[in-house]
């Protein structure tokens, strides 16, 4: 019953966001179609009226039809998986998205795992060794990265490691002279190109994860079962990994989906800085070319991806944490 409610809520969220973006894009200044028509009229040598009619039928934009009709037609297409039409490329946004999405998901998932893993480990260590030099160091590091917007971290990495030291490439997702496929040079090139974006996200997020883990671990350390484990004479290392670590990391799992969403939003800036052809880069491209159709498709897809990530966390969490299962 609870799952049905969750899934319905997720569907409702996507539908509301899609409908709002439909209405917003309807408000777009109409001259974008006129500009497109002018271009077509010039290149194909037809009159501006003919070109304008062509554009309207291509985009599916016909201001004479009632708004509700157009909305229902668009919604029907959306339900069939068509995210809309790119005003610039004059093809369905789907072709662009399904090319771009894997890159973004690839970089984001590696960054998320890296920052979560390293952060959780550091947090556990400083929770146990409260008086070591590591604690103030990590706290200051967390404040500093909190103060630095992610796109500035990315920009610094780009200037330092790509433009000055030239250790990493400054654009693209792989070396274009290689054939994409399952071969070692291509895979190496993919990682070489993704390294800086991954580093930017990871550096930016480690501190926050470490502080969250520290707080979580400190509260677990006060539990009776830790005292009991110590009284049983278990080795300290085993207490740390099996008793403190496992219990402290669980509440943080719910934060993973939230962080994923935040990183997805930040990808517009990060991918633009590194010229990385994920969906964030295409969002910037759409902004530059006033391609509202592409922006709308990208926003709906991003929302769907995050809602899905949240849903997966909701399903997985009770499997990881038996205490939650019992409460159901």
């Amino acid at each position: 019953m609870r799952w049905i409610r969750r899934v319905l809520l997720a569907a409702l969220t996507i539908w509301l966001v899609a409908s709002i973006t439909f209405v917003v894009v309807e408000q777009a200044p109409g001259d974008i179609f006129y500009l497109m028509a002018q271009e077509i009229a010039q290149t194909r040598g037809v009159s501006i009226e003919v070109a304008y009619a062509q554009v309207r039928s291509m985009v599916g934009y016909d201001p004479t039809r009632p708004l509700l009709d157009r909305y229902l037609e668009w919604l029907g297409e959306l339900l069939r998986g068509n995210l809309g039409f790119s005003y610039f490329y004059r093809i369905s946004v789907n072709q662009i998205l399904f090319q771009a999405l894997p890159w973004t998901v690839f970089v984001l998932s590696i960054s998320l795992l890296l920052s979560f893993g390293i952060g959780a480990l550091l947090g556990l260590v400083i929770a146990v060794r409260r008086r070591s030099w590591l604690d103030p160091l990590i706290t200051s590091y967390a404040s500093l990265t909190d103060a630095t917007p992610d796109y500035l971290t990315a920009l610094l990495l780009l200037i330092l490691f790509a433009l000055n030291l030239k250790w990493f490439p400054s654009k693209g997702a792989y070396d274009s002279s290689l054939t994409p496929g399952f071969n070692l040079p291509f895979i190496l090139s993919v990682f070489h190109h993704a390294a800086l974006p991954i580093l930017a996200y990871t550096l930016e997020n480690i501190g926050a994860w470490a502080l969250a883990m520290k707080g979580s671990a400190i509260s677990v350390l006060g539990e009776d079962f830790i005292t009991f484990a110590r009284a049983r004479g278990l080795p300290e290392r085993r207490i740390l990994t099996h008793y403190v670590g496992r219990n402290a990391i669980l509440p943080m799992v719910t934060g993973l989906a939230l962080a994923f969403g935040g990183m997805f939003g930040g990808s517009v800036l990060i991918e633009t800085v590194f010229h990385y052809p994920g969906i964030g880069w295409f969002f910037k491209f759409a902004l530059d070319h006033r391609d509202y159709g592409m922006m709308r498709g990208l926003l709906i897809l991003t929302t769907a991806a995050i809602v899905l990530a949240n849903l997966i966390t909701d399903f997985v969490y009770p499997l990881l944490d038996p205490r939650i299962r019992m409460e159901d």
């Binding site: 809520l9 969220t13 509301l16 966001v17 973006t21 917003v24 894009v25 408000q27 777009a28 200044p29 969403g261 935040g262 997805f264 939003g265 930040g266 517009v268 800036l269 969002f283 902004l287 006033r290 509202y292 922006m295 709308r296 990208l298 926003l299 991003t302 929302t303 995050i306 809602v307 949240n310």
Partner: peptide, 18 residues
Amino acid sequence: NIQLTVPAVPVYLLIGSV
């Protein structure tokens, strides 16, 4: 919940440019 789920930057870009 919708505000917290949908990332802000794309929303700003779409609404801001329209």
